[in-house]
Simulated scan of single mutants.
Amino acid sequence: MARAGRRASVATRRFGWPPRGRLRGRRSRTYGLGVIIGALDALMERGIFERRPVKPLAHVLLGAFNEGALLVAHASGPAAARAEVADTLAYMLERLRLPSA
């Protein structure tokens, strides 16, 4: 486990990715969870998505996106897996859309 943590640390320094714990405030709106929270807030505010508690929904969606990416990355047929994951994520997000939107 220490070895995996070291690789993540090297990648963070090499590519300039901020450590997860430092993604706060203004910068958090630029990465992962912050982007999802901002998008959900905007979609709900505009009446496109039904009102739901944003923070837990954002965490669940981020988990779905991450797991979908892992599924594609480890698939023997990545193109087919990518299409299936995209279709599944679109289905999930469509359930949040209000009928009038």
Rank of each mutant, 00 (worst) to 15 (best):
E67S: 05
L70N: 08
G38C: 02
R14N: 09
P78M: 11
R3H: 11
R95F: 04
R26L: 06
E94C: 03
L61Q: 01
R27T: 08
S76D: 15
R95D: 14
A79L: 13
I48V: 15
R26W: 05
P53K: 11
H74Y: 12
A58N: 09
G21H: 04
I48P: 01
L98R: 14
E67T: 06
A80E: 15
E84I: 05
G34W: 02
G5N: 12
V72D: 04
R82A: 15
A83L: 12
R46D: 15
W17I: 15
L43V: 10
A58S: 13
A75Y: 08
G63I: 00
L33Q: 05
G68W: 06
G68Y: 07
A69I: 14
L89Y: 07
P18Y: 03
L70F: 07
P78W: 12
G47Q: 10
P56T: 09
S100L: 12
A39C: 03
T12N: 00
A2F: 01
L43W: 03
D87E: 14
R97I: 15
S100T: 14
V72I: 14
G38Q: 06
V54F: 00
L62S: 03
A11S: 03
R46M: 14
P18G: 04
A79I: 13
G34F: 00
E94T: 06
H59C: 07
R27L: 02
R22I: 08
A73T: 06
T12F: 00
T30F: 03
L61C: 00
R6E: 15
A11M: 09
R95W: 06
R52V: 15
R14V: 13
L98H: 10
A79D: 14
S9D: 11
R24M: 07
H74M: 13
P99S: 11
G34Q: 01
R97L: 13
I48D: 07
I37R: 10
M92W: 05
R7C: 07
A83M: 09
R3P: 02
M44P: 06
R7G: 02
L23S: 03
A64R: 09
G47D: 12
A90W: 01
A75F: 04
L57N: 04
L71A: 12
R13D: 13
R29D: 06
M44F: 07
R51Y: 06
R3Q: 11
L98A: 14
L62C: 04
T30K: 07
L61V: 04
A86P: 06
A4L: 12
W17G: 07
A79E: 15
R24D: 11
R95L: 12
L23I: 08
P78E: 12
P56Y: 09
G38R: 03
L93V: 14
A80C: 11
S28W: 03
P99D: 13
G25T: 05
R95Y: 07
M1G: 05
M44T: 14
R24N: 06
A2K: 05
R82N: 13
I37E: 13
S28G: 05
N66E: 14
A69P: 04
A8E: 11
T12W: 00
A64M: 11
A4K: 05
A8N: 07
L23N: 03
A8Y: 04
M44D: 09
